[in-house]
Design a binder for these strands. Structure first.
Lengths: 185, 185
DNA sequence: CGATACTTGTACCAATTAGTACATTAAAGA
DNA sequence: TCTTTAATGTACTAATTGGTACAAGTATCG
């Protein structure tokens, strides 16, 4: 049996899936070991701070992805409408049309929130603000843009909850379609 | 110290808060004992099936409340618009303007869902259908009513996630205000 | 009062939890 | 190659987990 050498970055996706599916409390080291294929030795080598550090790394990883693929385009893209359309497409792809859940959203519910309050709050605040910026650049009034962006961010989270609850990805797809119409893209 | 005699029904609210705040996995017997004021003896006397039975009892309790206060009025009230307005008010009160989270929604995310799939799915499906009925009675076209009701249910869940994530009840209040406007009440 | 059923606290259990210690193995650089 | 650093598996811990057993307490009702 060959010993495979990993690095920290490699395990973040698998780690993310575990926290996504089980939440922070539910993600036991046993599950984490099974899903990452790493033993405790490696896990605590990469994350000396244990589960808490793992969760923080996952949150940072997710945040980086959204910053690159969604928030920055929303803030900086010349074509604001195109950036908004891109956000919808990226959201649909990332959450696999509602089959995948939002780790950050899952952490927001439950007392886990306190522990990761900054990362959780920041992720959503920046999404809301980036979208508001894009809407303003697309010609909306500032107040309307703020309202609309908050509504959009919250609708995506709600769509994830509802589509998972009734076990029907069509719920998520329909919600994104309505969102496109409301956002005018 | 007097020995106080409880009955099953009495502990459901406290039990509900525990699952609400900690989720199913995070709700340890130790926490449950502390919050309900009941020892293991009483707990397993009332709920021989352990945590799973406690969670099912909580879900049923919540379901009953919504059935009585929200779903039935939506289905049966002569004045459909009034029933919808009542739904908004009941929702705001129940979730304490976003300070309280939805147990059913919290269970929907995470692998807990599988275990309580029926209760979770049913709760949301009935909410959506009851609201659709009311909207049709209020004069909407069936298709528009179905779309609008799905959007409303999911917006409430999303508002709970977002308001908790950014730690701001104003998010929830604004979301309900937008909802009232969209539902025309 | 006395019998019966309900309620509760305590002691206990095996399994699992997160985390540590450390020796071994693999890779990288001189 | 030799040395150093990074990565890994194994064995271990102390605490906590959900759950059981059961005796003792309390209420109910004849």
């Amino acid at each position: 049996m060959a010993k495979i050498v990993h690095e920290r970055e490699d395990v973040l996706p698998a780690l993310g899936e575990v926290f996504r599916e089980h939440g922070f409390e539910g993600a036991s080291l046993a599950i984490i070991q099974a899903r990452t294929g790493l033993g405790k030795g490696s896990l605590y080598h990469f994350f000396p701070g244990g589960k808490e550090e793992m969760a923080n790394a996952v949150l940072a990883h997710v945040d980086r992805w959204f910053e690159d693929e969604v928030y920055r385009p929303l803030r900086e893209d010349e074509d604001a409408a195109a950036a908004i359309a891109r956000m919808i497409a990226a959201t649909d792809a990332y959450f696999r049309s509602g089959q995948r859940v939002c780790v950050v959203g899952a952490f927001a519910l439950g007392e886990t929130r306190e522990r990761f309050a900054f990362a959780v709050g920041d992720y959503f605040a920046r999404w809301r603000e980036a979208l508001r910026d894009a809407l303003v650049r697309a010609g909306r009034a500032p107040d309307a843009a703020a309202d609309l962006s908050e509504d959009a961010v919250l609708s995506i989270q709600g769509a994830l909850v509802l589509s998972r609850a009734v076990n029907d990805t069509a719920v998520f797809t329909r919600a994104l379609a309505r969102l496109k119409a409301r956002l005018g893209v």
